Simulated assay, not measured.
Amino acid sequence: MKTNEGNIDRVLRVVAGLVLIGLAATGTVGVWGWIGVVPLATGALGWCPLYTLLGVSTCPLKR
């Protein structure tokens, strides 16, 4: 697995994942909020399988 997420992308994913999980835990959004595990995991790993399939990368170019 090669990293295909930049730092800003990773931070936004982790924050969004934590917010969704928090809302699900408090019962605000229901069971669908647990989908926040996906952005949390991809942000923590720095690798998104969908980005790989689409050929997208938000990592800065290495010179």
Rank of each mutant, 00 (worst) to 15 (best):
L20R: 03
V14S: 00
V11D: 02
I8W: 15
R10H: 10
I35N: 01
L53P: 09
C48E: 00
Y51A: 08
L54C: 07
A16W: 06
Y51M: 03
L54G: 05
G55Y: 13
V29N: 02
G33Y: 07
G36C: 01
N4V: 00
Y51E: 00
D9M: 10
W47N: 08
G43E: 03
L50C: 04
V38H: 08
G55T: 13
N7W: 09
I35M: 15
L23C: 11
A16N: 04
G46L: 07
L53T: 11
L18C: 11
V15E: 09
T3Y: 08
V19L: 15
N4W: 01
L54N: 06
P39A: 03
N7E: 10
N7A: 12
L20F: 14
L40E: 04
T3Q: 10
L53C: 13
L23F: 08
L40M: 13
T3S: 04
W34E: 00
M1H: 07
C59F: 02
G17N: 01
P39L: 02
W47R: 13
C59A: 05
G55L: 13
E5P: 02
D9W: 10
T26D: 08
G33S: 06
A16H: 06
V56K: 15
V38K: 01
G33W: 10
C59S: 05
G36M: 03
D9L: 06
A25R: 09
L45Y: 04
L50D: 02
K62Q: 11
L12I: 12
L12M: 14
L53V: 10
V31E: 11
L61C: 06
A24Y: 09
Y51W: 11
W34T: 07
V38Y: 09
V29T: 11
G22P: 06
T52Q: 15
T42C: 08
A24K: 05
T58C: 13
G55A: 09
D9G: 03
T28P: 01
G30A: 08
G36N: 01
V19E: 00
G27I: 09
L23E: 03
G36E: 02
G33H: 05
L61I: 12
P60T: 15
L61E: 13
P49H: 07
